[in-house]
Design a protein around this nucleic acid. Structure first.
Lengths: 162, 162
DNA sequence: TTATTATGTCAACAACGCTGACATAAATAG
DNA sequence: CTATTTATGTCAGCGTTGTTGACATAATAA
């Protein structure tokens, strides 16, 4: 330590940190634009998207599983989940070993809708990946993962390695 | 075209696209957590943060300048900007050439507060940069920039190269 | 049997997007 | 010089989505 001061640390200057902060803001803003538009047409919002997305990715997940993954209150989740169940996008089955649980699955309608939402983001992300190239994409993942709370990283890793 | 199918395109499979989508969600969620906490203590929200941030980064910007950068309605902006002005975080001066304009500046109070907010994100981002390394960071920027709407990329580039 | 857990529900509140309508002062065009 | 456009502000209302707090039920676990 203290031996050599690597010039590469220049990328840790305020300027570069602000660049990351700004790009994260702008990218996230536009990243949510396409699905938001589709959702609005069906009378849903971004929160519905998340539930559809993660139920689709984690079939037979439970309510508490979703709560841990999303880190929102059960009241918030209950509102959107209830609507999705009522409108036939998600279906609930009592757990087999623990009958208090509600195992969540997308219905066919839910799968179709999720596909549509995914497609709207897929294009944007695929284009960005293609333009930037595989090495950049690896860096993109790496930095994002390290921005996640350390206490959450386990959960996130388990999710993205599905 | 069609000659060789590069195996590197594997990184464009659904799995890798979903990984980006998920990491973007989790990282953004946690990325906003620290400032949100500080903001709440002062009775502000995320929207106030953005205004403070971009006024700080673009001294003497105008209301319409902010509107173009943030892409929200003037009514939304007006609400938060008004509070920040009233509470003494931002100060308005009539434009010199065009007296209809309100040139926006952070006050000292505003600068102090913005520094505090920035510090809370700086740590997180700096740690992520350090862990991932400079090449990863370059990729992170590159992919994020390409996720931004093409029509907005000019504006974003101008911003991040300040 | 008692305590804990998984889930749900009712109510209220705040932040922050949005639309729509109207107002004023200053700049600019004809 | 008048008419239009521009920069900004304001009032009112609405929808989504997060929050807290309190209470309820059924099933599991101690």
């Amino acid at each position: 330590m203290q031996r050599k001061i690597p010039q590469s640390n220049l990328y840790l200057r305020e300027e570069e940190l602000r660049r990351g902060i700004e790009l994260l803001y702008f990218a996230y803003r536009d990243f949510t634009r396409d699905p938001d538009k589709i959702l609005a047409e069906s009378g849903f919002g971004r929160a519905h998207h998340r539930v559809l997305y993660f139920v689709g990715r984690n079939p037979a997940t439970t309510v508490s599983g979703l709560l841990k993954l999303l880190r929102i209150t059960k009241q918030s989740l209950s509102r959107v989940l209830g609507q999705l169940v009522e409108d036939g996008y998600i279906d609930q089955q009592p757990g087999t070993t623990d009958r208090r649980q509600r195992l969540l699955h997308l219905t066919e309608k839910g799968r179709d809708f999720e596909k549509q939402l995914f497609a709207s983001q897929r294009e944007r992300v695929a284009r960005a990946y293609k333009t930037a190239g595989p090495d950049a994409v690896a860096g993109f993942w790496e930095v994002l993962l390290n921005i996640v709370d350390e206490s959450e990283r386990e959960i996130v890793l388990r999710q993205i390695e599905k």
